[in-house]
Design a protein around this nucleic acid. Structure first.
Lengths: 287, 287
DNA sequence: CCCTGTCATACCCGGTAGGTATCACCGAGG
DNA sequence: CCTCGGTGATACCTACCGGGTATGACAGGG
């Protein structure tokens, strides 16, 4: 049959990501032989070869790449189904837990907008409870996809809105955040090229899923770290205007003339049919 | 665990749609008791009640409704993963089957556009093979979602583009298609109200998933049926301009002044990463 | 040439998915 | 009021298969 069980998908994803049966089995908490057998059965059932077993490791075939991408989406959708179902549980028992929405926001971003949104929505009649879930760098997309969140504030062009429904909420320019004493801090405006190649102030490198892009700048995974490094005169950063909310006394913000504008959207899974969500979106677009 | 196996999802969907354990079990090709037990286990594992077992049948709880919607998306995503993986199978073996894209189109719609697109794309260097899959009324969305198709031509506002990436290709007006001898056929233009309430020509009702909306008009599930009924003077229909391509001698087309314009898009799953698809989209937008 | 690291094979065991038989319950009729 | 039909739940059994351990085959590197 063409059924493709969740367990098989999980197994294949582990092998496809590790490209090593032993490590994949360890990650799955099982022994290597049953994993090998499961993958073979999967290949037989699909009638397709997924992995090339070279001596010295494993590599993906074209079909394997396809299953890696499509399977990720499928696994996310199933865990999303489980999470959202659990969250909806008991909401219809009278006096039970209130209908609740999880809103993912990039930690520290759009503080003022978020505040206004929450206040305005709480004032609505029969507003649901909103749980604000601060997310790491650009993690809102994954959170919507795998059901950890029901709705998110996203920032184009940093987040991709592909696959979600969304409404535009706000557009803002970007600023360079410099140490207060730095010569460039005296300028009224700057351009991206001014700040991208300052010898004594290399741009910080943000953690993306635990890895860092190459470059000379310091490694960062937290806004406070970054703020401190700027204050110490070690680096410079580029942020949307609303970042002024958390600047320190030792920081100076200078508008960037040629940085792309940042557009904040409210986004949600395209197939959502929740009344509470509709209310929140309506509130947001009216702000 | 929070794993949620595909099999459990399939079982629950059957029960949730039939609202009857016996019929659901029959549809699944199994006996009723194991199905009952499987649903109970699912409820225990999720820690949520999904179904209200009233005497005389079954009904969904709030959590059940949630799992019905989210589970449909999850099941579609897994079958899409299986289908697309199978289709990609062997594409990397040299001399093996060519890379192939399945393009879903509403049967009979946008004939000229489709023709131009296929011709232009076939002329591209290293074009993939395109399989054209004619779909029923508004079924392209489902076909993209469950992997029967890789890309589709969709027609706003009839198809919803929610959850897909898309590019606009063409905008056209709509026409009323009347029996040639009918008095209204003599007009140069008409408005929607002119054709919506003609006593002797009730608007046809199209099949949506096997059911028909209520109303006086004849029941239709096929364009040829409709064309014949119009030619016989039994009904009238509203179509995009490009429907002129298949008009009969006994038909008269009259432009509608106030009908919403129909926008044809090319649409594809938001997470697609296929080179062949990218080429097709590039060709389409350049037409 | 052996040793190491890799994935595949052989074999065994226990959990569980599925089947059959039956129960418990309620609504509808006579 | 009792019975009968139709619902989902329970009890029990069996067989399959998912998972474990032990081992094999095979290639590279010291």
């Amino acid at each position: 049959m063409d059924t493709l069980e969740t367990r098989e998908l999980r197994y294949f994803m582990a092998v496809a990501e590790e490209l090593h049966f032993g490590r994949a089995a360890e990650r799955l908490g099982m022994a290597q032989p049953p994993l090998s057998r499961a993958i073979q059965q999967l290949e037989r059932r699909l009638g397709v070869s997924l992995l090339k077993r070279n001596r010295r490791g494993v590599s993906l075939t074209g079909a394997g790449e396809m299953l890696l991408h499509e399977g990720r989406a499928a696994l996310d959708a199933t865990t999303a189904a489980a999470r959202r179902t659990r969250r909806a549980g008991g909401a219809d028992s009278p006096g039970g837990p209130r209908n609740r929405l999880v809103l993912a926001v990039k930690a520290g971003a759009s503080h003022e907008l978020l505040h206004k949104l929450l206040d305005a929505y709480a004032a609505e009649p029969d507003a649901a409870e909103i749980e604000v879930l601060p997310s790491g760098t650009c993690e809102q997309e994954g959170m919507l996809r795998d059901g950890r969140a029901d709705v998110a504030l996203m920032h184009a062009p940093f987040n991709s809105l592909a696959g979600f429904d969304s409404e535009e909420l706000m557009t803002e320019g970007q600023i360079a955040i410099l140490p207060a004493g730095h010569p460039l801090a005296a300028h009224r405006t700057l351009s991206l090229s001014d700040v991208s190649d300052i010898p004594d102030l290399p741009l910080a490198r943000w953690s993306r899923h635990g890895t860092y892009p190459p470059g000379p700048g310091p490694e960062i995974h937290d806004q406070t770290q970054l703020a401190q490094l700027i204050a110490l005169g070690r680096t410079v950063a580029v942020f949307p205007d609303s970042a002024r909310a958390w600047l320190w006394a030792e920081h100076t913000a200078v508008p960037l003339t040629d940085a792309p504008p940042v557009v904040t959207h409210i986004a949600w899974p395209a197939h959502s049919r929740s009344l509470a969500l509709a209310g929140l979106i309506r509130t947001a677009t009216r702000l």
